[in-house]
Amino acid sequence: MASRLAKSALSAARARPTLPIRNTLPAVTTFATSTPRQQTGVPQKDPKSAANSILDALPGNSIASKTAILSAGAGLSVAAISNELYVVNEESIVALSLLTIYWAVYTYAGPMYKEFAQGQHDKMKNILNAAREDHTSAVKARINSVQDLSGVIDVTKDLFAETAQLEAQAYEMEQKAALASEAKSVLDSWVRYEGQVKARQQKELADSIIAKIDKQLSDPKILDQILKQSVSDVERIVSQKSS
């Protein structure tokens, strides 16, 4: 047990140098990737920017909070190692290497993936936006084509008023015509009735005269008188001719 304690203390002492390795690794790589050409031109500026990039990667805004985070992390790791909450052994090296790989994938493949994803995103978005613009232009064209018929409401209103007026007049005329035709038919019927009455009276008159004459003709006195009258008429005509 004592030997293990001593070993862990030793490893704790040795674990601390491993922390700077992880921290300097990003620095070296950013040094290599961000300014590969400036490396020969301005070599003295790069370490400072690399250190700044490490500092910027830490959370927090001010220098004080960043220092606090750094020191707290270091203190926590030392405490964890010394209390055997975390045992540094072979597995830590595997973990370190795997985390390095994940960091590398995140740093190098991440932007590439993001670019690819953004490309896909933009592609779909462009298709949708183009469709929207097509639709807008189609709607605008339709609006323009319809705009020529914008006075159609007033025309319709006028036409409607006119139609109503004409219809009223037509109705009035129709009523008048109906009234006139009715009056005419009434008058006609009167006229027909009067005519019938007059015809019947004439007929009655003729019948009574004929009957009276027939009656007179059947009387011999009258026949005689007629005969005398006609003989005297003939005599007078003859005398007139001879004279």
Partner: peptide, 14 residues
């Protein structure tokens, strides 16, 4: 392989 290599490396580094 990772385990064996890390065992070697751990022994070397400590």
């Amino acid at each position: 392989l990772l385990n064996i290599l890390s065992g070697f490396t751990y022994n070397i580094m400590t």
